[in-house]
């Protein structure tokens, strides 16, 4: 069972606003991923883009691995335009995973950050107080599924086109910090753009809340060899692909 294998596109859907849901059928036996782990994906046979790109596991069903990603540049554009039956290169599952929530938990997703948390709420269904934020309504995807998997779903958009108005970190922190909140003391799992995670840190740090964040950095190898993907930890640089992508919030220098 190798973590380097070929897989065939078994489904590809463009959801709203440039978000693609890609399903892969591995050609060989594969290692089962844990929520929070990621894969390096690449269309075969081209040197431009040269490097594989990291994507969180979104879901595993009927021996299909699926990924949810936003089309941003060259590689994601190519991946989103592959046809059923085409074969790509895959390395994974890689990195660590979200620690198992012992109880109900809070999940905070910013934009396509929902990709990595989806697998967690699927595995621990009806236990997540899920806060899902985006700039605007069009960027929110799979709301029906998320709402059926979560214990409670709070939607936040910056332009107030859906759910609460504002940023998801404030909505979540406000809900945790009100007196006698049922959410106070629950572990928090977050994934989204860096500024969002930074904002979450400034709202929640020092409050005794266990908070896990999934981070992104540019990657070359994905397996810990190149030292290209580091983030600043408290005492030393940490590799997102190896020590991460999931970090306890207080391990990181924000």
């Amino acid at each position: 069972m190798s973590r380097f294998f070929k897989a065939e596109i078994s489904g590809s859907d463009i959801l709203n606003s440039d978000i693609c849901l890609l399903s892969l059928k591995p050609h060989a036996e594969y290692e089962h991923p844990l929520p929070g782990q990621f894969y390096m994906l690449q269309a075969i046979g081209c040197y431009d883009p040269l490097l594989k790109r990291p994507f969180s596991i979104f879901s595993i069903k009927n021996n299909n691995l699926s990924f949810l990603f936003r089309v941003r540049g060259k590689a994601t554009k190519i991946l989103s335009s592959l046809k059923k039956g085409e074969v790509i290169d895959v390395i994974g599952p890689l990195g660590n995973s979200y620690p198992e929530p012992g109880s109900d938990f809070v999940a905070v997703a910013g934009g396509v950050g929902v990709a990595s948390l989806y697998n967690l709420i699927e595995k621990y269904s009806c236990r997540a107080h899920f806060f899902y934020g985006a700039k605007t309504k069009d960027e929110l995807v799979l709301l029906d599924k998320i709402s059926s998997l979560a214990k409670e779903l709070t939607i936040v958009t910056q332009d107030c086109s859906c759910g609460l108005e504002g940023v998801v970190t404030d909505a979540c922190a406000d809900a945790i910090c009100i007196p006698d909140s049922a959410l106070n003391g629950l572990p928090v799992y977050a994934c989204g753009p860096n500024p969002m995670l930074k904002a979450l840190h400034s709202r929640l740090s020092g409050k005794g809340i266990k908070c896990y964040v999934s981070l992104e950095e540019h990657m070359a190898c994905g397996v810990g060899a190149c030292l290209g993907c580091v983030v600043k930890g408290i005492n030393e640089y940490k590799r997102v692909c190896k020590e991460g992508p999931v970090f306890s919030m207080d391990e990181i220098q924000w």
């Binding site: 040269l50 490097l51 540019h218 190149c226 030292l227 290209g228 993907c229 580091v230 600043k232 030393e236």
Partner: peptide, 23 residues
């Protein structure tokens, strides 16, 4: 050696730039 601050790598046409800083 600690190496350089991130971001340390960027992709270029058929190549990559790295400044790991010899960590």
């Amino acid at each position: 050696k600690q190496g350089n601050p991130p971001p340390r790598i960027a992709e270029t046409p058929a190549g990559m730039l790295n400044a790991i800083g010899l960590q």
